[in-house]
Design a protein around this nucleic acid. Structure first.
Lengths: 246, 246
DNA sequence: CTAGCTTATTTGTATGAGTAATTTCTCCGC
DNA sequence: GCGGAGAAATTACTCATACAAATAAGCTAG
């Protein structure tokens, strides 16, 4: 029996994984590395010592390290030990790494970088989506817009709908590697909202630009869609910049 | 059960990881998944059974699975077992996943997707690089161009120089998340060359468009750089398309 | 038929022993 | 002194075994 779980569980990327011990070891160490508490080049204590320090078995500790290693955060070799890799090796587009990076307040520079990426990727994705979107995509986007309008971005449901809207556009672009950027885009979207509401009492209404984008994609006009998304991201960027340097 | 490891030490992106047993378990299973031999939704045999089948200990097997799980390829839960995740969960931008995907001949659709991504990302990166490049960046790009010209893309050294050229541009864009796309770009670059040389005896000379791009970045003109990169990728795409549908 | 308990199965964790890789040190020949 | 081969020490890696925890499925009482 094939279960079609298209959209089902987008949030909580690997929620179950940090319920197990190896998962929380990875998460704790990952956050420590991303927040700079372990700098690139630093050598971690040996397996026996560190696992005892963390009060976990070597098995669980090693599995945690394996996770970090798979994401490029650390490298282990016999005799040398396990050391934090150079930043350039970190897979900054990995969903978990993004989540860990945002666990602590992320640096302004990182948020700017994500917006720059968003500005590059999303307009192009919107253009592709306008050409390739299916009826189902349109229905999902429409539903997301409704939800967004009904609940507003002040509620969890509204923010989830916003995420779903942007995510559906990426899906509609029908490009696997592009889709893999969704967590990065989602992170930028989330922090836009956070900053916007932190700064302003009566934030700008996000619905008009979203509706314009939706219309363009429904109409199947790639260039209009590209322009609409560019405008949308530019506005979001303006909101965020305002909060970043008050 | 074919456990042949084709070419042992030919290239070494993260060579150390598949030297250890857990690494080769991850690699073998990863290739099997990416090549479709284990489809999304499939449940793998139990740990004890499968690890015995692979002639490795349960510990090593589990560490391999942890690696795959960290990259989104599989999910394990007690009682249900370990199953291959939906494609949308795969982190297709992970360097290892790309390497595994290209271990077997990749699908045309995947190569097209990568090119689409390249066409989106690289022109924008070139524009940013033109604004932000340092003297060191320019020196590196210049050196890479020289090497490329001297050895030609028929040699390993020439191809490495090509990679280095494109990689330096991404670095010069001064954007961490963007840099993390380098392995995806590199994969597309590599397969361009492979297809080009497979198809044509006397392939198009890649130097003129590379030099034009280099000049634009040295001159610090973002729009010219963007245009030059767009032209370069378009040519590469044309070469590849020609090989894809003969 | 439902709610709740039981059970069986599978992954998760712990521990200890032993292996392999690799850096560093040492010693030998020169 | 100096360079290189070999020994030693340190560290991660692998293995085997035992037990714990989670959970889907089946069972039983109501």
């Amino acid at each position: 029996m094939r279960q079609d779980r298209g959209h089902e569980d987008i949030r909580l990327p690997l929620a179950s994984s940090w319920r197990r011990i190896h998962g929380s070891v990875a998460r704790d160490l990952g956050v420590a590395i991303l927040s700079g508490r372990h700098a690139p080049g630093d050598v971690l204590p040996g397996e026996i010592e560190f696992s005892e320090q963390l009060k976990v078995s070597r098995t669980a500790y090693r599995e945690g390290i394996r996770i970090l290693s798979a994401k490029g955060l650390v490298e282990s070799r016999p005799r040398t030990g396990t050391r934090v890799s150079q930043r350039s090796r970190w897979n900054l587009l990995d969903p978990d790494i993004l989540a860990w990076a945002f666990e602590a307040e992320p640096s302004e520079a990182f948020i700017r970088d994500l917006f720059e990426l968003r500005m590059i990727v999303e307009p192009a994705a919107a253009a592709l989506a306008a050409e390739r979107r299916s009826g189902l995509d349109i229905a999902r986007m429409g539903h997301a817009l409704e939800e967004m309008g009904r609940h507003g971005l002040a509620t969890e449901a509204g923010r989830a709908a916003d995420q779903a809207f942007h995510n559906t556009i990426l899906e509609a672009a029908r490009n696997g590697p592009l889709m893999a950027l969704s967590s990065s885009i989602a992170a930028a979207v989330t922090w836009t909202t956070i900053f916007k509401y932190r700064q302003q009492d009566k934030p700008r209404d996000p619905m008009p630009d979203h509706r314009a984008l939706y219309d363009a994609i429904v109409a199947g006009d790639p260039e209009v869609a590209r322009a609409a998304m560019t405008a949308l991201v530019r506005l979001a960027l303006a909101d965020t910049e305002m909060a970043l340097r008050p």
